[in-house]
Amino acid sequence: MIPSAFDYEAPATVAEALTLLADDSREVKVLAGGQSLLPVLKLRMADPELVVSLQQIDELRGVRMEDQTLVIGAMTRHADVAREPLIGAHAPLLARAAAEIADPQVRHRGTIGGAVVHADPASDMPATLCALEAQMQVVGPSGQRTVPAAEFFEDFFTTVVEEDELLTAIRVPSYDDWGIGYEKFTRVAQQWPIVSVAAMVRLEGGSIAEARVALGNMDTVPVRAAGVEAALSGAAPTQEAVAAACASAAEGTNPTEDLNGDATYRRHLATVLARRAVLAAVADAGA
């Protein structure tokens, strides 16, 4: 319950933060809401010498539209993502998934950037941002780069963000005419999902024109169900067609085994939840 001792800095700008991160003489952890980091520190599963809080950096907060693209500051809190009208209008899947994260207290404190860089494959944001084909804006000593969500997550709790880099913003294209569905399967409300599915569909002329389906906790990183998406493209928005398309949802996944279920069960769940999420998205799209 008592972390190891550390020094603490709360820089006011990204530039100052990067200077602090560049100090490789000390083990540094970035504090971006702390809803995953502080439990780790309290259990002494990490003992950094310096904690750099991004709380004072105003430029990392807030949501704006830039050319039909939502730009969400990394330090935007989950509660704000969930209730921000711009996000509700242009990327409702993101708002919906943000509202499902952990509990209200955590959503009042935790940030989208913090959750994304923590990269827990079971958490809500990674799979959702993959479905949304978000672009991650990363800044470091050598300047800024933009990484597609699909390439951003490398492994359990590991992303492309280097130790001297910061995730500054997440860019999400507009999905104004899409229907959404989000399925989060847990045994109790507090639990991390055993499997989650984020889905979006766009209907055109009475059939599914495009679909996005991403799975959470089915591998060490979030997984796009590409086969399902392809099968849905052009399909009729019916129970049968969606079920047939989603039967392959678990293909190519490598889910973990734990107290909540073995891989067989998780693969099965993925197909059921994918179907339910897509059908919800179809209904939401107005079919």
């Binding site: 045994r187 109790v188 409300a189 507090q190 639990q191 991390w192 107290l259």
Partner: peptide, 14 residues
């Protein structure tokens, strides 16, 4: 099941 993360005590919605 060494914490409430793994030992599932129900909360109100459960």
């Amino acid at each position: 099941t060494g914490s409430f993360t793994e030992y599932l005590v129900p909360s109100a919605p459960d």
